[in-house]
Design a protein around this nucleic acid. Structure first.
Length: 288
DNA sequence: AGTGTGTCCTGTGTGC
DNA sequence: TGCACACAGGACACAC
């Protein structure tokens, strides 16, 4: 379930495995995910030293010592599984065209110079990877045009109000627009709107003043709480299976159609509607 | 320019 | 049990 908090915990899980290590082997097991892999993908990564693992919105940015960046987007179903050096693979035996033991939908397998193994698995293949040349991050087609990080000091009520001014689209759709604010997805948008008491159908342009303040605060609170949940519920962000960054979470609005609203003093019932082709869950009683 | 819709892909859950 | 269908956390390429 990769939204920003999940991507963040994946980064925190990958970093200790990768930073300071060399990528000794890369097994790219198909020519494309959502998009073709960039030319020279395997050669560029093989032998490279990892210096940092960063995140921008929902993009994982693996920094290499030669200045290049390995960009990974998890799409809908992308996930990383790690196996520390010296242990057996967690993958099931299957068709093995490459050197690595691979389970179904294992598309990229990396091994570090200390024998750790990092597997990218993506059932739906909506994820993708790219390589960014040194100094070219601003020119990357995926990263250029992204709005501010929601947890940063750049994401203020003032900025938000001005970004929404004149937008004749529902606030739900505006929040999905990564140019307005980068990293929010369907779940946390539903949660933030529920928490701030704003209807997902409200015209974006009408979210300003106190409403904008409430929504900005709710976005930050919801994301921070989810990141905390990821960190506290998983030791070092790694499950027993080796899978990174995915954690149990209970939602107040998302996926609760027909259930009682959990807001104190509210006797509403959560409804599901479709906006921009996506399910929206909200309480019609207290979200206005 | 801004906004809405269809599409990529596979797996899972539900209802008949 | 088998089958058809709806739906799934994202982002892009279009049409209007």
């Amino acid at each position: 379930m990769p939204e920003l908090p999940e991507v963040e915990t994946v980064c925190r899980g990958l970093a200790p495995m990768l930073v300071g290590r060399r990528l000794s082997r890369i097994d790219q097991r198909r020519p494309d995910l959502r998009f073709p892999f960039p030319p020279g993908f395997v050669d560029r990564l093989t032998g490279a030293m990892v210096t940092a693992v960063d995140r921008r919105a929902k993009y994982i940015l693996i920094r290499l010592s030669d200045g290049w960046t390995w960009l990974v987007h998890l799409g809908m179903s992308g996930r990383f599984t790690i196996t520390p050096g010296g242990r057996a693979s967690s993958g099931q035996a299957g068709h093995n065209s490459g050197w690595a033991l691979a389970a179904p939908h294992d598309h990229v397998i990396a091994e570090t110079d200390d024998g750790a193994r990092i597997v990218y698995n993506d059932v739906r293949r909506f994820g993708f990877m790219d390589l960014i040349p040194p100094g070219d991050e601003a020119g990357n087609k995926h990263l250029s045009g992204l709005g501010p990080e929601p947890l940063s000091d750049d994401f203020t009520a003032e900025y938000f109000s001005s970004a929404l001014a004149g937008k004749r689209t529902p606030i739900k759709a505006a929040l999905l627009d990564q140019r307005v604010v980068a990293g929010l997805g369907n779940i946390y948008i539903c949660e933030a709107l529920w928490r701030s008491g704003i209807s997902p159908r409200r015209l974006a342009a009408s979210v300003n003043g106190k409403r904008a303040e409430r929504l900005v605060g709710a976005v930050k609170d919801v994301l921070a709480a989810a990141i905390d949940a990821g960190g506290s519920s998983l030791r070092d962000y790694v499950q027993a299976t080796g899978e990174l960054g995915y954690f149990q979470h209970s939602w107040d609005a998302y996926d609760r159609e027909g259930s009682a609203c959990r807001r104190d003093g509210c006797d509403g019932v959560i409804r599901r509607i479709v906006q921009s082709g996506r399910s929206t869950y909200f309480c019609p009683k207290h979200q206005r």
